[in-house]
Amino acid sequence: MTLSGVFVPLVTPFDEAGAVAVDALDRLAREVLDDGATGLVALGTTGEPAALTDAERRTVLDVVGRVCRERSAPLLVGANTRAELVALADSGATAALCAVPAFLRPGEDGVVAHFATLTGPVPLVVYHVPYRTGQPLSAGAIRRLAALPGVVGIKHAVGSVDADTMDLLTNPPADFAVLGGDDVFISPMLALGAHGGILASAHFATRRFADLVDAWHTDPPRARALSAPLTAGAAALFAAPNPTLVKAVLHARGRIPTPAVRLPLLAPDPTLVDAAVRAW
């Protein structure tokens, strides 16, 4: 299994009473798949999973999982512990999106050993985001992770296209998906050979993001033309903590009932909301 294309990490919309807006979540899932997304991510960072109750997380997984089953679309689910992974075994999830351990900075050997203990219940996609976790990984360490049975890919979000990114994409592991996770860097990642992206910005203009992935593999001049407005739009959406602006624009477009986020997130500055709305 090599994952490719555009995966949309869905927001968790809330209604006026503060509950999960189930109908809006179902509608969002269907809209982005209809518009060209390859698959969906449930309970990723964009979905605010840490702010949800256990029951709410089950509701989100049930809704998004049902849509993916109906559409035969792959589903990634955010999960970071052995217990969470075991619970996913019968959920129909294609893979779990599992973050490199944060804050502890266990070193590369510790990261590899950690993921070795998690393999088995479901395939794993490593979520590598060192500016959040504090733990960098070299291209060599990523290749060691790729060699673990059941580790099928990586969400690669290092905040740049650095030397290790170049090294990894110059000689990628076989049968291992490299998915760009920094929306503003998705074009250079694809140009270097990434298989696709996990992109919060693809709540909007999903078809253009899907076309961007295809074009970098088949028609680079067209890909360059597509890139500039999508990159600018992504930058506007990430001018405040994610998913505050994504939700604000979705609400402004009438796609979710409120723009509400839960603490510790706060509503974004209205000036940034206006800029993001204009960008999309």
Rank of each mutant, 00 (worst) to 15 (best):
M1N: 03
L3M: 07
F7R: 00
P13H: 01
P13G: 06
A17I: 00
A17P: 00
A19R: 00
R27V: 05
A29M: 03
R30F: 06
E31K: 00
L33K: 00
L33D: 13
L33Q: 08
D35S: 06
T38L: 09
T46V: 13
A51T: 09
T53H: 07
A55N: 04
E56Q: 07
E56C: 03
T59V: 08
V60N: 02
V60L: 04
L61A: 04
V63K: 00
V67S: 01
C68E: 15
S72T: 09
S72C: 10
L76S: 05
V77S: 03
V77A: 01
G78A: 09
A87N: 05
T94E: 07
T94M: 03
A99H: 03
V100T: 11
R105V: 15
R105I: 14
R105E: 14
P106Q: 06
G107N: 09
E108P: 11
G110S: 02
G110Q: 13
V111E: 13
A113D: 11
V122R: 00
V122W: 11
V126Y: 06
Q135M: 14
A139E: 05
G140R: 15
G140S: 15
R143V: 03
G150L: 12
V152T: 11
G153P: 12
A157N: 12
V158P: 15
S160P: 14
D162A: 12
A163K: 15
D164E: 14
L169A: 05
T170W: 13
T170C: 14
N171A: 13
N171G: 05
V178M: 06
L179K: 05
D183C: 12
V184P: 15
P188R: 07
A191I: 13
A191G: 14
G196W: 03
A200H: 02
A200K: 01
S201H: 07
A202Q: 08
H203S: 01
R207A: 10
R208V: 03
F209W: 11
F209H: 12
V213H: 04
H217G: 04
T218A: 04
R224Y: 12
L226N: 05
L226C: 12
L230I: 02
A232C: 14
A235Q: 13
N242P: 15
K247H: 10
V249W: 09
V249M: 09
A252H: 13
A252K: 10
I256C: 04
P257G: 05
P257I: 01
V261F: 07
R262F: 02
P264N: 12
L265T: 06
A275W: 13
A275I: 05
A276E: 04
